[in-house]
Design a protein around this nucleic acid. Structure first.
Lengths: 211, 211
DNA sequence: GCACTATACGAACGGTCGTGCTATCTTGTC
DNA sequence: GACAAGATAGCACGACCGTTCGTATAGTGC
């Protein structure tokens, strides 16, 4: 009933090179600005001004503000992948990777990859009370991130690098708590000592870094 | 140089009983709605509609939106005092109070005193990148809250209820991290098990509840 | 009970929001 | 080099924003 046939699929609009470049520039700015102004508070006009193009020119790349927000999340996810997940995955599964995930996360805060700290912590706090497609995508990503922590914790336990007592989910929760706190405190006060406190807490939780 | 004399102080406008009642109702709604819509996203019009009065009638109680935001923070602080700090302070200083502060905080999340979780976590995440008087007041309150945790941790250590090893600031940081995580996770997913995880983490940090 | 004034309202302001429409450039394809 | 289509800009819209103003109503101190 009303099922779209393949023939009715969107006609696969071809993209021009300059258009793709513009779109990339827009989303780069959007991902970074959203951690400062918020994903909702970021207006099309200001984003256009900041990108150096007209409001309608920018808007032509998206069918609605919500599509822009979803594309921004996707771009932020790519940045997070490149800056945190990918380097951490270069480490062996288990305790080493768990430490690497934490260290890379804290490093991306310190390097201020996003001016407003962790993108997903920032927009997650904004959209946790706003049901819809945007919130859905954010929460899915957070679940994947937590899953990554849980998997590393479970591997560490199976390798005997960590005691089995707090189950992997609990361990991931406590690690994530320290990372979230580091984001919140460092974004609010800007003092690197507040990142170091998270590292101290992690050492109490995981023991010293392996190797 | 341009120093205000006492005579120039604001003429102490007298308040009527019904006006005070209206103002209280406005701020009650504002404090709760701000955890959902955000302190900036909450518009005068919607707040007025939600309170059952006209936009201009509501606005007459404040000289600007920023004054309304500051008054809202003050009201939220009173609520937090009544729902969390005051009951916790009924406990003896030291480990007992540290546990009470944590439990009362988690309880106020579970009872949904604010629909968007912890007021100061929510608006703190919104304003951490917005310098100004609003952010200043929020950060001052957070410092006071952390100070309360630090003081209780220090007292617990001096009473020999906790090892002296992680200094009180570090201990307070880790406790606060679990509480912040509980707020974020519970607000996003609504699962009480996510509050329980914080309690488990606290037990690993502080040992079992005393008495 | 009267005079005073805090309170509340309706209307309107300049501005910005997201969103369309149309025209004009610019790029890639044959 | 012509031509279809993508990219961008200009303009305008209705809605809502914070804010102001004039005015009617009603609580309070004398």
């Amino acid at each position: 009933m009303n099922q779209p046939t393949p023939a009715e699929a969107p006609p696969e609009r071809r993209r021009r090179a300059d258009g793709r470049r513009s779109r990339d520039a827009i989303l780069d700015n959007a991902a970074r600005l959203a951690t400062v102004e918020g994903l909702e508070g970021l207006s099309i006009g200001r984003l256009a001004e900041h990108t150096g193009m007209s409001k309608s020119g920018l808007y032509a790349h998206f069918t609605s503000k919500q599509e822009l927000q979803l594309a921004t999340i996707e771009r932020a996810q790519e940045i997070f992948e490149a800056e945190v997940l990918s380097p951490a995955r270069a480490n062996a599964d288990g305790l080493q990777r768990l430490w690497a995930l934490s260290d890379e996360f804290l490093s991306h805060l310190e390097r201020e990859v996003f001016p407003g700290g962790c993108f997903f912590a920032a927009v997650g706090a904004e959209f946790d009370t706003h049901p819809g497609r945007v919130r859905e995508r954010i929460s899915v990503f957070i679940e994947e991130w937590v899953g990554e922590l849980v998997a590393a914790a479970a591997a560490a336990q199976q390798a005997g690098e960590l005691p089995a007592d707090p189950d992997p989910e609990q361990l991931a929760y406590e690690v994530d708590a320290l990372l979230l706190m580091a984001h919140a405190a460092y974004t609010m006060y800007g003092d690197p000592a507040l990142l170091e406190r998270a590292r101290v807490g992690l050492a109490r939780l995981l023991g010293p870094r392996p190797e």
